[in-house]
Every structure is written in structure tokens, then in C-alpha cells.
Computed example of a mutant assay.
Amino acid sequence: MVSQPSPDRERSSAPLRAHNAIPRDRVLDAARDIVVDVGLRGLTMADLARRADVSRATLYRTWPNADGVVADLFTREFRTLLQTAMRSVSGDDARSMLVALSVAVVRLARRLPVLQRVIELDPGFIAPYLLHRRGASTDDQMQLLEDLIRDGQTDGSIRAGDAAVMASAVLLDAWAFVLTGPVFVGEDHLDALDAELRLQLDRFLTP
């Protein structure tokens, strides 16, 4: 995906930081800025070290290569997105909360700068997470959906069923609306599309 140089000793007057003192968020912020500027293929450990103002040796103590940085970046960005969505919604019961949260996540994900840039320049990066494996942020979303479904089954707002399978169906639906919704309806009709998602999820979950 992202070709990287082999780690080597670099000559720098900057002091090395202890492993546990690496400014992790500063590095990930720098990685985000590079991806938004030039895409994943422009992210190298050398450029990242310069942008984050740390040595390459320091970076390699935490991440083996740029792919590892990208994985942590996307995990952080989606966890932050999920927290933002959770703060923005409310509901009278677990079903209304789950539906509102799912639609909020879809809307935020469509506007996430790093995701937009990857879709535009490096769409192949997404394929393994759709076809072969789940990432850490997907696990977070799945766990939250399962918990909400079980809560809804307890309070009577969500029908009976396997919570894990039902959560998978909700998440698959939501990701389709994120990735292919704009292609099918265009940017001018996304609000109407999201209203359909809200209706679809509500009917899917209603007892």
C-alpha cells in the first residue's frame, strides 16, 4: 500500500525521546495533515518525522512503518468521530438512540477529511477492511451497536434476534450509505438519503 524506506540511523541534532514520551497525538496529527495534503502514498516516515518534529528513530520505536501509523490514525479518527456522534444524539429508548447514532456517524464519516482523501486518491486502502478483515474502529462500532441492541431488547424497543448479527447488518447498511450513497444520489440529495436510512433502520429494529 504505502512503500517505505528501511529504518536507518539518521544524523540529527534533535534529542531522542524515550519510547513512552513520544508525542503520539502530534505524530498522528502530522500524519493526518500529510494524508489530507497528498494522500496515503505521500506519507513516508521521513516526511512524517519532519512534519511532527521528531526523529525517525523515535518514530520507529513506536511504529514499524507508515502503514502502522496510518492504522493508528484511522483508529483514532473514527473513535473521535464516534464520540462526537454520541454527544450529538439522544433518544427515548435504545432503538431511537441507535438509529440516531447510526445516521449521525454516517453523516460525519462522509465529511471526515482523511476518509474523503483516501476515497479520492487511494481507494484500494479501504478494500481489505471491506473484504478481508475488520479494523479496531469497526470492532468499537460493532460492540456499541451490540450493546444498544441488547439494551433495546431489554426495554422492548428492539425485536428479538442475535445481537451480533443484527449489529453487523446495521453497520453494513451504514457503511454502504457512507461509501456509495454519494455516488448513487449525488451530494444534493444526501439529506433525503439519510432520511431513508433512518426509516430503514427503524423498521428493521422495531419489534
Rank of each mutant, 00 (worst) to 15 (best):
Q116T: 11
R107D: 15
A160E: 11
V70A: 08
Q83S: 14
Y60F: 11
P123E: 06
D92G: 13
G181F: 00
T75Y: 08
S102W: 00
I126K: 05
D173F: 07
P182F: 02
D93Y: 05
D72C: 00
G152N: 03
Q116F: 07
D67I: 15
A136C: 02
M166L: 15
P123I: 10
L112N: 08
A104R: 08
A94L: 11
T75Q: 13
M86Q: 11
E77L: 14
L131D: 06
L101A: 03
A94Q: 08
D140P: 03
F74Q: 09
R107L: 04
L172M: 11
F177E: 09
R110T: 01
A104F: 03
I126Y: 04
L59V: 04
D122M: 05
A136L: 09
L59E: 03
L101M: 09
S55V: 06
R150V: 14
W175M: 13
A127K: 12
Q141K: 11
Q83W: 10
L144D: 04
A169E: 08
F125H: 12
D139N: 12
R87L: 12
P128L: 08
V105G: 02
V89D: 05
A52E: 00
R56K: 14
V99Y: 00
G161R: 01
Q153D: 03
V118W: 01
T84Y: 02
T75H: 07
A136E: 13
R51N: 02
S96L: 09
R51F: 02
S102K: 00
Q143C: 10
F177D: 06
L115W: 02
Q143S: 11
V170H: 00
S102P: 03
I149C: 05
D92P: 05
V178N: 00
T154E: 15
S96F: 09
N65S: 11
A176L: 11
A52R: 00
A104C: 12
S157T: 06
A164R: 12
A85V: 13
R133M: 10
R76H: 01
S102G: 08
A100P: 02
Q116P: 04
I119G: 10
E77K: 06
D155N: 05
V183P: 03
G91A: 07
L82A: 15
R107H: 12
Q141M: 15
V103W: 03
A109N: 00
L112H: 01
L59C: 03
D147Y: 09
D162N: 12
M142F: 07
L131V: 12
A176D: 13
S55P: 13
D93W: 06
P113R: 00
D173S: 14
S157P: 00
S157D: 06
S90W: 02
E120G: 05
S137M: 14
L144H: 10
D155M: 06
Q153A: 01
V89T: 15
R76V: 02
T138K: 04
R87Q: 14
H132A: 10
L108M: 14
L115R: 04
G91Q: 05
G181T: 02
V105I: 15
G156D: 06
T62N: 10
Q153C: 07
D140T: 12
D139P: 01
V54K: 01
G124N: 12
T154N: 12
G156S: 04
M97D: 11
D139Y: 02
F177T: 10
R76Y: 01
I149V: 13
L115M: 08
S168Y: 08
A164L: 10
T75G: 02
T138I: 15
R159C: 02
R117D: 03
D92A: 14
I126L: 14
A174E: 06
